[in-house]
Design a binder for these strands. Structure first.
Lengths: 209, 209
DNA sequence: AAGTTCGGCAAACACTTGTTTACTGAATGA
DNA sequence: TCATTCAGTAAACAAGTGTTTGCCGAACTT
Protein backbone atom coordinates (compact mmCIF):
# COMPACT_ATOMS: atom_id res chain seq x y z
CA UNK A 1 0.00 0.00 0.00
CA UNK A 2 2.80 2.40 0.77
CA UNK A 3 4.80 2.42 -2.41
CA UNK A 4 5.53 6.09 -2.11
CA UNK A 5 9.02 6.37 -3.39
CA UNK A 6 11.06 9.49 -3.90
CA UNK A 7 14.57 9.58 -2.55
CA UNK A 8 13.24 11.49 0.45
CA UNK A 9 10.74 8.93 1.71
CA UNK A 10 13.09 6.11 0.86
CA UNK A 11 15.85 7.43 3.04
CA UNK A 12 13.44 8.16 5.85
CA UNK A 13 12.18 4.58 5.74
CA UNK A 14 15.76 3.45 5.76
CA UNK A 15 16.48 5.37 8.94
CA UNK A 16 13.32 4.05 10.52
CA UNK A 17 14.41 0.55 9.66
CA UNK A 18 17.83 1.23 11.14
CA UNK A 19 16.18 2.31 14.38
CA UNK A 20 13.96 -0.77 14.52
CA UNK A 21 16.86 -3.07 13.73
CA UNK A 22 19.10 -1.43 16.27
CA UNK A 23 16.37 -1.74 18.88
CA UNK A 24 15.83 -5.39 18.11
CA UNK A 25 19.54 -6.05 18.21
CA UNK A 26 19.91 -4.37 21.59
CA UNK A 27 16.95 -6.30 22.93
CA UNK A 28 18.96 -9.48 22.52
CA UNK A 29 20.38 -9.01 25.99
CA UNK A 30 18.24 -6.50 27.80
CA UNK A 31 14.57 -5.83 28.08
CA UNK A 32 12.59 -3.12 26.51
CA UNK A 33 12.08 -1.03 29.62
CA UNK A 34 15.79 -0.51 30.06
CA UNK A 35 16.29 0.60 26.48
CA UNK A 36 17.30 4.22 25.94
CA UNK A 37 16.74 6.66 23.10
CA UNK A 38 20.40 7.55 23.00
CA UNK A 39 21.37 3.91 23.10
CA UNK A 40 19.17 3.08 20.12
CA UNK A 41 20.22 6.04 18.01
CA UNK A 42 23.86 5.38 18.76
CA UNK A 43 23.50 1.79 17.59
CA UNK A 44 21.61 2.97 14.51
CA UNK A 45 24.24 5.53 13.63
CA UNK A 46 21.95 8.53 14.09
CA UNK A 47 21.87 11.47 16.43
CA UNK A 48 19.58 11.32 19.45
CA UNK A 49 17.31 14.04 18.11
CA UNK A 50 16.74 12.12 14.89
CA UNK A 51 14.77 9.55 16.83
CA UNK A 52 11.92 11.97 17.35
CA UNK A 53 11.50 12.43 13.61
CA UNK A 54 10.24 8.85 13.54
CA UNK A 55 8.67 8.03 16.90
CA UNK A 56 7.18 10.24 19.59
CA UNK A 57 8.16 7.72 22.24
CA UNK A 58 10.25 4.67 22.84
CA UNK A 59 6.99 2.84 23.54
CA UNK A 60 5.91 3.65 20.00
CA UNK A 61 8.95 1.89 18.67
CA UNK A 62 8.05 -1.04 20.90
CA UNK A 63 4.55 -1.23 19.47
CA UNK A 64 5.96 -1.12 15.95
CA UNK A 65 8.16 -4.08 16.84
CA UNK A 66 5.14 -5.96 18.18
CA UNK A 67 3.34 -5.49 14.89
CA UNK A 68 6.31 -6.74 12.92
CA UNK A 69 6.76 -9.75 15.14
CA UNK A 70 3.16 -10.82 14.99
CA UNK A 71 2.82 -10.37 11.27
CA UNK A 72 5.38 -13.12 10.85
CA UNK A 73 3.45 -15.21 13.38
CA UNK A 74 0.26 -15.04 11.35
CA UNK A 75 2.11 -16.15 8.27
CA UNK A 76 3.37 -19.08 10.26
CA UNK A 77 0.02 -20.31 11.53
CA UNK A 78 -1.39 -20.31 8.01
CA UNK A 79 1.43 -22.46 6.74
CA UNK A 80 0.60 -24.98 9.45
CA UNK A 81 -3.12 -25.14 8.94
CA UNK A 82 -3.00 -24.91 5.16
CA UNK A 83 -1.58 -28.37 4.44
CA UNK A 84 -3.45 -31.66 4.30
CA UNK A 85 -3.12 -34.70 6.50
CA UNK A 86 -4.47 -36.21 9.70
CA UNK A 87 -3.79 -35.27 13.29
CA UNK A 88 -0.34 -36.85 13.41
CA UNK A 89 0.90 -35.09 10.30
CA UNK A 90 -0.50 -31.82 11.54
CA UNK A 91 1.25 -32.15 14.87
CA UNK A 92 4.58 -32.96 13.26
CA UNK A 93 4.26 -30.06 10.88
CA UNK A 94 3.26 -27.65 13.65
CA UNK A 95 6.28 -28.47 15.79
CA UNK A 96 8.61 -28.30 12.80
CA UNK A 97 7.27 -24.93 11.79
CA UNK A 98 7.60 -23.55 15.29
CA UNK A 99 11.18 -24.73 15.58
CA UNK A 100 12.07 -23.24 12.23
CA UNK A 101 10.26 -20.03 12.99
CA UNK A 102 12.14 -19.54 16.23
CA UNK A 103 15.40 -20.14 14.44
CA UNK A 104 14.68 -17.69 11.65
CA UNK A 105 13.05 -14.97 13.71
CA UNK A 106 14.95 -15.37 16.92
CA UNK A 107 15.07 -11.66 17.80
CA UNK A 108 11.37 -11.15 17.20
CA UNK A 109 10.40 -14.25 19.14
CA UNK A 110 12.64 -13.34 22.04
CA UNK A 111 11.13 -9.89 22.07
CA UNK A 112 7.63 -11.34 22.29
CA UNK A 113 8.52 -13.85 24.99
CA UNK A 114 10.28 -11.26 27.06
CA UNK A 115 7.78 -8.44 26.77
CA UNK A 116 4.62 -10.50 27.00
CA UNK A 117 4.74 -10.03 30.74
CA UNK A 118 7.26 -7.21 30.62
CA UNK A 119 7.28 -3.87 32.32
CA UNK A 120 5.79 -1.64 29.61
CA UNK A 121 2.04 -1.73 29.65
CA UNK A 122 1.40 -0.54 26.12
CA UNK A 123 3.67 -3.18 24.67
CA UNK A 124 2.25 -5.87 26.92
CA UNK A 125 -1.30 -5.08 25.94
CA UNK A 126 -0.47 -4.99 22.25
CA UNK A 127 0.98 -8.48 22.49
CA UNK A 128 -1.91 -9.86 24.49
CA UNK A 129 -4.51 -8.44 22.14
CA UNK A 130 -2.74 -9.91 19.16
CA UNK A 131 -2.35 -13.32 20.77
CA UNK A 132 -6.09 -13.20 21.41
CA UNK A 133 -6.82 -12.65 17.73
CA UNK A 134 -4.37 -15.39 17.06
CA UNK A 135 -6.35 -17.80 19.24
CA UNK A 136 -9.49 -16.76 17.42
CA UNK A 137 -7.91 -17.67 14.10
CA UNK A 138 -6.84 -21.04 15.46
CA UNK A 139 -10.30 -21.61 16.91
CA UNK A 140 -11.94 -20.96 13.57
CA UNK A 141 -9.56 -23.34 11.84
CA UNK A 142 -10.22 -26.03 14.44
CA UNK A 143 -13.95 -25.65 13.92
CA UNK A 144 -13.55 -26.68 10.29
CA UNK A 145 -11.97 -30.00 11.14
CA UNK A 146 -14.26 -33.05 11.22
CA UNK A 147 -13.13 -33.94 14.76
CA UNK A 148 -14.84 -30.81 16.02
CA UNK A 149 -18.35 -31.88 15.16
CA UNK A 150 -20.69 -31.11 18.00
CA UNK A 151 -18.24 -28.77 19.71
CA UNK A 152 -19.63 -25.53 21.09
CA UNK A 153 -18.13 -22.16 20.24
CA UNK A 154 -16.83 -21.83 23.81
CA UNK A 155 -15.21 -25.24 23.89
CA UNK A 156 -13.46 -24.52 20.61
CA UNK A 157 -12.14 -21.29 21.99
CA UNK A 158 -10.96 -23.05 25.14
CA UNK A 159 -9.09 -25.59 23.04
CA UNK A 160 -7.60 -22.91 20.82
CA UNK A 161 -6.24 -21.09 23.85
CA UNK A 162 -4.70 -24.29 25.12
CA UNK A 163 -2.96 -24.76 21.79
CA UNK A 164 -1.75 -21.17 21.64
CA UNK A 165 -0.41 -21.25 25.19
CA UNK A 166 1.33 -24.50 24.41
CA UNK A 167 2.84 -23.00 21.28
CA UNK A 168 4.13 -20.02 23.22
CA UNK A 169 5.68 -22.22 25.91
CA UNK A 170 7.30 -24.39 23.27
CA UNK A 171 8.68 -21.43 21.39
CA UNK A 172 10.15 -20.02 24.58
CA UNK A 173 11.75 -23.37 25.35
CA UNK A 174 13.30 -23.53 21.87
CA UNK A 175 14.62 -20.05 22.35
CA UNK A 176 16.29 -20.79 25.64
CA UNK A 177 17.73 -24.01 24.23
CA UNK A 178 19.16 -22.32 21.15
CA UNK A 179 21.22 -19.92 23.15
CA UNK A 180 22.38 -22.17 25.95
CA UNK A 181 22.26 -25.81 24.85
CA UNK A 182 21.33 -26.53 21.22
CA UNK A 183 21.43 -30.26 21.85
CA UNK A 184 18.24 -29.92 23.86
CA UNK A 185 16.25 -28.78 20.82
CA UNK A 186 15.44 -32.28 19.64
CA UNK A 187 14.26 -33.26 23.08
CA UNK A 188 12.02 -30.23 23.32
CA UNK A 189 10.53 -31.01 19.93
CA UNK A 190 9.86 -34.60 20.94
CA UNK A 191 8.21 -33.56 24.20
CA UNK A 192 6.05 -30.99 22.45
CA UNK A 193 4.88 -33.62 19.96
CA UNK A 194 3.92 -36.02 22.74
CA UNK A 195 2.05 -33.30 24.58
CA UNK A 196 0.14 -32.37 21.45
CA UNK A 197 -0.72 -36.01 20.89
CA UNK A 198 -2.04 -36.27 24.41
CA UNK A 199 -4.16 -33.16 23.94
CA UNK A 200 -5.49 -34.41 20.64
CA UNK A 201 -6.37 -37.69 22.36
CA UNK A 202 -8.37 -35.82 24.97
CA UNK A 203 -10.00 -33.90 22.17
CA UNK A 204 -11.23 -37.04 20.45
CA UNK A 205 -12.88 -38.25 23.64
CA UNK A 206 -14.35 -34.92 24.64
CA UNK A 207 -18.05 -35.02 25.37
CA UNK A 208 -18.67 -31.29 25.68
CA UNK A 209 -18.74 -29.17 28.80
CA UNK B 1 18.51 -22.18 61.61
CA UNK B 2 19.32 -18.51 61.79
CA UNK B 3 17.94 -17.50 65.13
CA UNK B 4 20.92 -15.31 65.82
CA UNK B 5 19.47 -12.39 67.64
CA UNK B 6 21.21 -9.48 69.21
CA UNK B 7 19.90 -6.03 68.46
CA UNK B 8 22.63 -5.68 65.87
CA UNK B 9 21.71 -8.65 63.65
CA UNK B 10 18.04 -7.96 64.11
CA UNK B 11 18.30 -4.47 62.72
CA UNK B 12 20.46 -5.64 59.85
CA UNK B 13 17.86 -8.25 58.90
CA UNK B 14 15.25 -5.55 59.10
CA UNK B 15 17.13 -3.39 56.63
CA UNK B 16 17.64 -6.33 54.36
CA UNK B 17 13.94 -7.02 54.45
CA UNK B 18 13.26 -3.37 53.69
CA UNK B 19 15.46 -3.63 50.61
CA UNK B 20 13.75 -6.80 49.40
CA UNK B 21 10.32 -5.34 50.01
CA UNK B 22 11.19 -2.10 48.30
CA UNK B 23 12.52 -4.01 45.32
CA UNK B 24 9.43 -6.15 45.09
CA UNK B 25 7.23 -3.09 45.36
CA UNK B 26 9.08 -1.29 42.58
CA UNK B 27 8.91 -4.38 40.39
CA UNK B 28 5.15 -3.96 40.30
CA UNK B 29 5.52 -1.71 37.29
CA UNK B 30 8.96 -2.17 35.87
CA UNK B 31 11.22 -5.08 35.21
CA UNK B 32 14.21 -6.13 37.11
CA UNK B 33 16.79 -5.02 34.59
CA UNK B 34 15.68 -1.42 34.83
CA UNK B 35 15.85 -1.38 38.61
CA UNK B 36 18.51 0.82 40.16
CA UNK B 37 20.44 0.67 43.40
CA UNK B 38 19.57 4.25 44.21
CA UNK B 39 15.96 3.64 43.38
CA UNK B 40 15.73 0.67 45.71
CA UNK B 41 17.55 2.30 48.60
CA UNK B 42 15.47 5.45 48.23
CA UNK B 43 12.28 3.40 48.43
CA UNK B 44 13.64 1.49 51.40
CA UNK B 45 14.61 4.63 53.25
CA UNK B 46 18.32 3.95 53.24
CA UNK B 47 21.32 5.61 51.72
CA UNK B 48 22.69 4.23 48.44
CA UNK B 49 25.88 3.00 50.01
CA UNK B 50 23.95 0.96 52.57
CA UNK B 51 22.87 -1.38 49.82
CA UNK B 52 26.36 -2.80 49.53
CA UNK B 53 26.32 -3.85 53.18
CA UNK B 54 23.72 -6.44 52.16
CA UNK B 55 24.24 -7.40 48.53
CA UNK B 56 27.28 -7.20 46.27
CA UNK B 57 25.06 -6.76 43.25
CA UNK B 58 21.55 -5.98 42.23
CA UNK B 59 21.46 -9.43 40.64
CA UNK B 60 22.08 -10.90 44.08
CA UNK B 61 18.97 -9.21 45.35
CA UNK B 62 17.13 -10.66 42.37
CA UNK B 63 18.25 -14.17 43.17
CA UNK B 64 17.16 -13.70 46.77
CA UNK B 65 13.73 -12.73 45.51
CA UNK B 66 13.59 -15.83 43.31
CA UNK B 67 14.26 -18.01 46.31
CA UNK B 68 11.53 -16.35 48.32
CA UNK B 69 9.04 -16.61 45.49
CA UNK B 70 9.64 -20.27 44.83
CA UNK B 71 9.52 -21.30 48.44
CA UNK B 72 5.91 -20.21 48.51
CA UNK B 73 5.31 -22.11 45.27
CA UNK B 74 6.49 -25.38 46.75
CA UNK B 75 4.19 -24.94 49.69
CA UNK B 76 1.38 -24.44 47.23
CA UNK B 77 1.94 -27.59 45.19
CA UNK B 78 1.95 -29.72 48.31
CA UNK B 79 -1.36 -28.37 49.43
CA UNK B 80 -2.82 -29.38 46.08
CA UNK B 81 -1.44 -32.89 45.93
CA UNK B 82 -1.91 -33.65 49.61
CA UNK B 83 -5.69 -33.86 49.63
CA UNK B 84 -7.84 -36.80 48.65
CA UNK B 85 -10.35 -37.15 45.84
CA UNK B 86 -10.60 -38.11 42.19
CA UNK B 87 -9.51 -36.26 39.08
CA UNK B 88 -12.35 -33.77 39.14
CA UNK B 89 -11.81 -32.77 42.76
CA UNK B 90 -8.10 -32.47 42.17
CA UNK B 91 -8.63 -30.19 39.20
CA UNK B 92 -11.02 -27.95 41.07
CA UNK B 93 -8.69 -27.71 44.02
CA UNK B 94 -5.68 -27.00 41.82
CA UNK B 95 -7.33 -24.09 40.06
CA UNK B 96 -8.66 -22.70 43.32
CA UNK B 97 -5.26 -22.86 44.93
CA UNK B 98 -3.60 -21.17 41.98
CA UNK B 99 -6.15 -18.37 41.98
CA UNK B 100 -5.75 -17.84 45.69
CA UNK B 101 -1.99 -18.05 45.49
CA UNK B 102 -1.83 -15.37 42.83
CA UNK B 103 -4.05 -13.15 44.91
CA UNK B 104 -2.03 -13.55 48.06
CA UNK B 105 1.43 -13.43 46.52
CA UNK B 106 0.78 -11.10 43.64
CA UNK B 107 4.15 -9.35 43.72
CA UNK B 108 6.11 -12.58 43.87
CA UNK B 109 4.11 -14.19 41.10
CA UNK B 110 4.42 -11.15 38.90
CA UNK B 111 8.13 -11.13 39.49
CA UNK B 112 8.40 -14.75 38.39
CA UNK B 113 6.22 -14.29 35.32
CA UNK B 114 8.12 -11.21 34.26
CA UNK B 115 11.64 -12.41 34.84
CA UNK B 116 11.20 -15.95 33.62
CA UNK B 117 12.14 -14.71 30.16
CA UNK B 118 13.56 -11.42 31.38
CA UNK B 119 16.80 -9.69 30.57
CA UNK B 120 18.96 -10.81 33.50
CA UNK B 121 20.53 -14.17 32.87
CA UNK B 122 21.29 -15.14 36.47
CA UNK B 123 17.72 -14.51 37.53
CA UNK B 124 16.31 -16.27 34.49
CA UNK B 125 18.38 -19.35 35.08
CA UNK B 126 17.49 -19.48 38.75
CA UNK B 127 13.80 -19.49 37.86
CA UNK B 128 14.14 -22.10 35.15
CA UNK B 129 16.12 -24.45 37.33
CA UNK B 130 13.55 -24.19 40.08
CA UNK B 131 10.62 -24.75 37.75
CA UNK B 132 12.42 -27.87 36.55
CA UNK B 133 12.65 -29.22 40.07
CA UNK B 134 9.03 -28.27 40.44
CA UNK B 135 8.10 -30.40 37.41
CA UNK B 136 10.06 -33.25 38.91
CA UNK B 137 8.04 -33.04 42.09
CA UNK B 138 4.80 -33.02 40.12
CA UNK B 139 5.99 -35.95 38.02
CA UNK B 140 6.73 -38.01 41.12
CA UNK B 141 3.32 -37.23 42.55
CA UNK B 142 1.61 -38.19 39.29
CA UNK B 143 3.44 -41.48 39.27
CA UNK B 144 1.78 -42.43 42.54
CA UNK B 145 -1.72 -42.08 41.14
CA UNK B 146 -3.44 -45.27 39.93
CA UNK B 147 -4.13 -43.71 36.51
CA UNK B 148 -0.41 -43.73 35.80
CA UNK B 149 -0.01 -47.48 35.79
CA UNK B 150 2.14 -48.56 32.89
CA UNK B 151 3.46 -45.05 32.25
CA UNK B 152 7.16 -44.70 31.52
CA UNK B 153 9.38 -42.30 33.43
CA UNK B 154 9.70 -40.12 30.33
CA UNK B 155 6.00 -39.96 29.65
CA UNK B 156 5.36 -38.95 33.24
CA UNK B 157 7.91 -36.21 32.96
CA UNK B 158 6.33 -35.03 29.72
CA UNK B 159 2.93 -34.87 31.38
CA UNK B 160 4.32 -33.08 34.41
CA UNK B 161 5.86 -30.42 32.19
CA UNK B 162 2.56 -29.95 30.43
CA UNK B 163 0.86 -29.40 33.77
CA UNK B 164 3.52 -27.00 35.01
CA UNK B 165 3.44 -24.94 31.83
CA UNK B 166 -0.30 -24.83 32.04
CA UNK B 167 -0.12 -23.71 35.63
CA UNK B 168 2.29 -20.93 34.75
CA UNK B 169 0.11 -19.73 31.88
CA UNK B 170 -2.94 -19.77 34.09
CA UNK B 171 -1.21 -17.88 36.86
CA UNK B 172 -0.06 -15.23 34.40
CA UNK B 173 -3.61 -14.90 33.09
CA UNK B 174 -4.98 -14.45 36.61
CA UNK B 175 -2.36 -11.84 37.24
CA UNK B 176 -3.19 -9.81 34.17
CA UNK B 177 -6.89 -10.10 34.95
CA UNK B 178 -6.50 -8.95 38.53
CA UNK B 179 -4.93 -5.71 37.52
CA UNK B 180 -6.99 -4.85 34.49
CA UNK B 181 -10.36 -6.62 34.63
CA UNK B 182 -11.16 -8.62 37.76
CA UNK B 183 -14.44 -9.78 36.24
CA UNK B 184 -12.47 -12.01 33.90
CA UNK B 185 -11.08 -14.07 36.77
CA UNK B 186 -14.03 -16.42 36.91
CA UNK B 187 -13.85 -17.00 33.18
CA UNK B 188 -10.15 -17.78 33.34
CA UNK B 189 -10.76 -20.25 36.15
CA UNK B 190 -13.52 -21.95 34.18
CA UNK B 191 -11.36 -22.20 31.06
CA UNK B 192 -8.43 -23.58 33.03
CA UNK B 193 -10.67 -26.25 34.54
CA UNK B 194 -11.94 -27.32 31.13
CA UNK B 195 -8.42 -27.50 29.77
CA UNK B 196 -7.29 -29.62 32.67
CA UNK B 197 -10.27 -31.92 32.16
CA UNK B 198 -9.34 -32.32 28.52
CA UNK B 199 -5.77 -33.13 29.39
CA UNK B 200 -6.83 -35.63 32.02
CA UNK B 201 -9.11 -37.22 29.40
CA UNK B 202 -6.16 -37.63 27.07
CA UNK B 203 -4.22 -39.05 29.95
CA UNK B 204 -6.79 -41.77 30.60
CA UNK B 205 -6.64 -42.89 26.98
CA UNK B 206 -2.89 -42.69 26.62
CA UNK B 207 -1.27 -45.85 25.29
CA UNK B 208 2.33 -44.87 25.84
CA UNK B 209 4.78 -43.33 23.40
C1' DA C 1 15.59 29.05 -11.03
C1' DA C 2 13.74 30.26 -6.71
C1' DG C 3 11.29 28.85 -2.62
C1' DT C 4 9.76 25.47 0.62
C1' DT C 5 9.89 21.27 3.12
C1' DC C 6 11.96 18.42 6.42
C1' DG C 7 15.43 14.57 8.02
C1' DG C 8 19.45 14.91 10.48
C1' DC C 9 22.90 17.28 13.49
C1' DA C 10 25.53 19.45 17.48
C1' DA C 11 24.89 21.59 21.70
C1' DA C 12 22.83 22.54 25.85
C1' DC C 13 19.33 21.69 29.54
C1' DA C 14 18.82 19.70 34.19
C1' DC C 15 18.84 15.56 35.79
C1' DT C 16 19.85 10.38 37.43
C1' DT C 17 22.95 6.72 37.56
C1' DG C 18 26.65 3.03 40.18
C1' DT C 19 30.30 2.98 43.22
C1' DT C 20 33.96 4.59 46.42
C1' DT C 21 35.48 7.46 50.11
C1' DA C 22 36.10 8.86 54.87
C1' DC C 23 33.14 9.48 58.55
C1' DT C 24 29.87 8.64 62.77
C1' DG C 25 27.89 6.43 66.56
C1' DA C 26 25.44 2.66 68.65
C1' DA C 27 25.79 -2.30 69.82
C1' DT C 28 29.18 -5.62 71.24
C1' DG C 29 32.88 -8.07 73.85
C1' DA C 30 36.94 -7.99 77.03
C1' DT D 1 34.95 0.85 81.41
C1' DC D 2 37.30 1.06 77.30
C1' DA D 3 38.35 -0.66 72.61
C1' DT D 4 36.48 -2.70 68.66
C1' DT D 5 33.20 -3.83 65.29
C1' DC D 6 30.27 -2.48 61.61
C1' DA D 7 25.48 -0.78 59.64
C1' DG D 8 24.51 3.41 57.91
C1' DT D 9 25.74 8.24 56.15
C1' DA D 10 26.94 12.35 53.19
C1' DA D 11 29.67 13.78 49.56
C1' DA D 12 32.06 13.34 45.44
C1' DC D 13 33.25 10.94 41.09
C1' DA D 14 32.75 10.47 36.07
C1' DA D 15 29.42 9.08 33.04
C1' DG D 16 25.02 8.31 31.49
C1' DT D 17 19.98 9.92 30.59
C1' DG D 18 15.47 12.25 27.74
C1' DT D 19 14.21 16.11 25.34
C1' DT D 20 14.45 20.84 23.17
C1' DT D 21 16.76 24.24 20.53
C1' DG D 22 18.44 26.45 16.29
C1' DC D 23 20.58 25.39 12.29
C1' DC D 24 22.14 23.12 7.81
C1' DG D 25 21.58 21.37 3.31
C1' DA D 26 19.65 18.02 0.20
C1' DA D 27 15.34 16.76 -1.77
C1' DC D 28 11.18 18.28 -3.37
C1' DT D 29 7.51 21.85 -5.49
C1' DT D 30 6.21 25.62 -8.25
Amino acid sequence: MNHTVGARQAQKQQSRRALLDAGLRLLADQNFASLGVREVTRAAGLSPAAFYRHFPDLAALGVALVEESLASLHVMIRSVLAGEGGAEELIDRAVDVIEQHVREHQPHVRFLARERHGGVRRVREAIDAELGRFAEEVGAALGLQPVSEGWSEDDLRMLAELYVDHMVSTAAAFLEAQETDPAREAHIAATARLQLRLISLGRRHWQGS
